[in-house]
Design a protein around this nucleic acid. Structure first.
Lengths: 370, 370
DNA sequence: GGACGAAATGTGAACGCAAACATGCGCGGT
DNA sequence: ACCGCGCATGTTTGCGTTCACATTTCGTCC
């Protein structure tokens, strides 16, 4: 910086003023300084700046399972929003599911780095523990956190999602709705389950036993192998879209057609859900919206200078596609089970009127993979 | 720090020594200092440290399209490897596809932050441009970069992947293989296309016209609507698994069965590919491996203190599942096209011997979504 | 034309740490 | 008994900024 000052024939302080856009700098010196900066290829040292000012404009994000669609979408959205707010982002990626030690290290580092604020993507309790390590002065926002943590939180209303899915299935005339839930540790799983139970209760039907899956197609497949053997099971609410995919495969292998024999609702609305076979009816979570709101709430705290306990809920929406139909008449079902040709096609063109082009304007903007 | 020193009854320098694990500190003072640190909840200021030492242990990652499976897996792997190497990671997420401006800002910031090294996930040219802004002193590794950039690079051997896929289809007796390519700007797309052409050439067959898709199921679906009308098209090599999914749907809607009427090979091996309907034969990219190698190569440069131009190639592997079969005899095909019942089921249980359980031990460890 | 005030610029110190150098202590060897 | 060496610790300085304050310059009003 003093090199620049020397070259421009001014003091270092004037250079600093130019750099920070302070007033009381004459246009001529400003251009002279700017020219010197350009000629020397000078870049200000952010560490020194942080040291001198005591504040930084970096926001830390603590996330796990960032290969999953939800977390990665949210991190991406937070990143974009941060860029817009002229903040820089440091993302700490926690490996694996249980990760208290890893998250502790990450938080520790983020704090030492002087992060101005922290966003915890905390769909499981592990992340909450590390939150204690954050000095009270620095603002926090959780995503998918728990209200009892008493910090600003934003999440999708998972309970409403469970309600939506279950009601949708019941409205088509199903006696009851089965549920393949996600991992127990995830808050979202529990809330969706609660929503499912609530919808069942309000319809006055008893909840069938619940199955537990991971988030993967593989675990959905395992659950599906069980459910396919239960003739009474005509409607399933799946933990997420990939679990639904695994379910569909298992059902197909057992000759149970979707949606003719069993109806299915997923969760998330991953971009490819519209192209499953058949196209998946699902509950859409607007992850990008969640990420943006998280950053906004953090920003609010940053300018206020204090932690708050505000919160935002993003409403999920039902995306109706081809995996939900009215159940077949009850007497048909056993008849079908005893049919000699057990391995039949799972409904491809049998109901051509459902064969709508899967809304390209809806699915196109969201590209995945490779 | 001086507070700690005062409390422990030593000088600040001794505290510093303890913090950095320097020798020549007696065990008793060490424990005393440690105790004082714990009591005071002291945390060293990383900015000051960076300022004083001139070196930082943060690695910058410049990435775009981090919601895609590939990039997110790689970022995740880099993050885990970095944690292991006691480095911290700053991830700059570039929004959208064209992003020279955004990447420039991100690089600028990373450099100012004093990043010790940079990883560019650069599957398109946009990222390369910003690479010029990095001062020559600081090491760079690109992922999916181009050899002519003259920097250390690691990528999956996409050419070999194209070769693998095309040869596999040809080996099953297909006259030729069609290709639905990914976006032209992506280096990987071009390399896969080249591999496809090479395999075709070595078999002495002419390349059919090539289709261009995005990475999404939606764009695959659009391409599939065209290909489904071409009776000669019996084998397709898809840009990636999601494109393959879209293709499968379009083919099914036109009554063309996979693999009976047309065989299909995808790319990536996303966790749910084994649960597509039918299970997708695909080329697996070991993204996590790529990420780890990238960090290793960066580390090598960090200790060497110079940029190098080493590089690593990760070999893709063919994962054979249920979407590739021998083509039907030629006289069968037209007969099928003229059949009065045009909308028939796309091969569910007709070939039960292919109905293998989709290797749960392979798909289980990789959980996605929500 | 002088005084006053605002604008423009400069000066010194401090931020928290680590590196280099300086000091004090105890030990063993001749 | 003395010297010298190595270990343990303290002191000083500087990293590149910004901040608070001091100083100079310029325009303007009476």
């Amino acid at each position: 910086m003093s090199d620049v000052a020397a070259r421009a024939g001014v003091s270092h302080q004037t250079v600093s003023r130019v750099l920070n856009g302070h007033p009381h700098v004459s246009p001529t010196t400003r251009t002279r300084v700017l020219a010197a900066i350009a000629e020397l290829g000078y870049r200000r040292n952010l560490s020194a700046r942080v040291l001198a000012t005591g504040r930084s404009n970096v926001v830390g994000v603590v996330a796990q399972n960032t290969t999953l669609y939800g977390p990665s979408s949210m991190v991406q959205a937070i990143g974009e929003a941060a860029l817009g707010a002229d903040l820089s982002l440091t993302v700490g990626h926690i490996a694996g599911y249980d990760a208290t030690a890893a998250s502790r290290r990450i938080v520790e580092r983020l704090v030492q780095q002087g992060a101005a604020g922290l966003v915890f993507i905390a769909p499981v309790d592990a992340a909450a523990e590390a939150m204690r390590l954050v000095p009270p002065g620095i603002p926090i926002v959780t995503v998918d956190g728990l209200p009892e943590w008493q910090v600003t939180n934003v999440s999708v209303d998972q309970h409403a999602g469970g309600l939506l899915a279950t009601r949708h299935l019941l409205a088509h005339g199903h006696r009851t709705v089965w549920h393949v839930a996600g991992p127990e540790q995830w808050h979202g799983s529990r809330a969706r389950e609660a929503g499912w139970r609530a919808a069942l209760a309000e319809a006055g039907v008893q909840a069938p036993p619940m199955l537990r899956a991971g988030w993967s197609a593989a675990s959905g497949y395992q659950c599906g192998r069980m459910l396919a053997r239960i003739p009474d099971c005509t409607a399933i609410f799946a933990a997420n879209d990939h679990v639904a995919l695994g379910l569909m495969r298992a059902l197909a292998e057992h000759g149970r057609r979707v949606p003719d024999d069993v109806s299915l609702v997923g969760f998330d609305d991953v971009p490819e859900a519209a192209y499953f076979h058949p196209a998946l009816t699902t509950i859409r979570q607007e992850f990008a919206d969640v990420g943006r709101q998280a950053l906004r709430l953090l920003l609010d705290q940053l300018v206020a200078g204090t932690r708050t306990a505000a919160s935002a809920l993003v409403e999920p929406i039902l995306v109706d596609r081809d995996t939900v139909a009215a159940p077949r008449r009850h007497q048909d079902a056993p008849q079908r089970q005893e049919a000699p040709q057990p391995r039949e096609a799972p409904q491809p063109q049998e109901a051509p009127q459902r064969q709508k082009v899967p809304q390209p304007q809806e699915a196109l903007p969201r590209d995945r993979s490779s």
